[in-house]
Design a protein around this nucleic acid. Structure first.
Length: 298
DNA sequence: AATATCCGCAACCGCCGGAGG
DNA sequence: GCCTCCGGCGGTTGCGGATAT
């Protein structure tokens, strides 16, 4: 590794060799002393860059390449309302997710919502094609207060974790708090006590002369279907107007979705996530959803 | 098939706070 | 009290793949 000029700092994508060096360093010294990696001439990366690479990509037990499950999405939505943009804090509730993951998820979601509101707010929107809006998800307001989990949010573990590769592989995530569920399963989000009810985006009373597409009418009809509601959660109010609420607790808490990656189409086919759920909504359905207040108004 | 647009992701940047000299 | 260094965090950007036109 000689020949490194200390002034030359490498940026951009990491190479496999660099990852190897970083992993070796962490195995040996633990996830700390990031700046020493460069001062020792091991890598031409800054300490910050090394730390980021470890935390976001190389750390054990990360969920790479799998979308947020319905449960994870709900947790993020709830906790964002509770904590604001404290991504690192929110990430501690989500085993295998990093603050960067949460941040990226949220910003993608915000962009989608912005677009949906933009299109639904225009007079011609009910004539517009579904386009990308088919993936839009709702925003939940006035979410319940949640209790913080009892664990250290620090990623810095004892160096004993790094004595051998197997220990690294099996290293428990600090945020992984398991609780036995009534049905015998385990919830990783144990502190996430009964997620009571989360307000659904308000849908105003339908006007008799309001023209809806056949799909929308069919969808509204399905809201009376017990099974459909069980997917959404249970409605606390018979009518959808005003403060219609849906329980997003157990019905949406699916061990398959919440505990691991769901990547195959078959896995997804049998589960309804917020995204897949709203895939079914014709675009003109969103014309009925009132514009949301900005986060600053919460 | 070509182009435009969207989206997810990885990584960088700047700010902040704590620790140590 | 100050300065410097380091690590942590949130915001932002740029790239590449996917999707729509």
């Amino acid at each position: 590794m000689e020949g490194f000029k200390k002034e030359e700092i490498r940026k951009g994508p990491w190479k496999a060799e660099e990852d190897e060096v970083l992993i070796k360093h962490v195995k040996k010294y633990g996830p700390r002393d990031w700046s020493s990696i460069r001062s020792k001439g091991l890598l031409q990366r800054t300490g910050k860059s090394c730390r980021l690479r470890w935390v976001n990509k190389l750390r054990p037990n990360l969920k790479h390449g799998c979308k947020f499950s319905a449960e994870e999405e709900r947790v993020v939505i709830d906790l964002q309302a509770e904590f604001g943009n404290k991504w690192a804090r929110i990430a501690t509730y989500l085993p295998g997710r990093t603050d960067n993951d949460v941040k990226n998820f949220w910003s993608s979601r915000q962009k989608r919502l912005a677009r949906i509101l933009q299109t639904s707010g225009t007079p011609s929107s009910s004539n517009s094609k579904p386009e990308k809006n088919k993936n839009e998800v709702p925003v939940f307001q006035d979410v319940p207060t949640l209790e913080a989990p009892v664990f250290s949010s620090s990623m810095e573990e004892e160096s004993s974790y790094f004595d051998n590769p197997e220990q690294i592989r099996m290293m428990p995530l600090p945020s992984l708090v398991k609780t036995e569920l009534p049905d015998g399963g385990y919830a990783n989000l144990s502190q996430y006590e009964p997620l009571s009810t989360i307000p659904f985006p308000q849908i105003p009373q339908l006007q008799p002369d309001l023209l809806l597409s056949p799909e929308s009418q069919e969808l509204l009809a399905r809201l009376d279907d017990p099974y459909f509601l069980s997917v959404l959660g249970t409605a606390d109010t018979p009518e959808l107007g005003g403060a219609a609420q849906f329980s997003l607790g157990p019905p949406l808490f699916d061990p398959v979705l919440s505990s691991g990656c769901v990547n195959s189409a078959a896995d997804v086919a049998n589960h309804v996530t917020p995204d897949t759920l709203f895939d079914e909504f014709p675009s003109d359905m969103f014309d009925l959803i009132e514009p949301l207040p900005s986060p600053s108004d919460w």
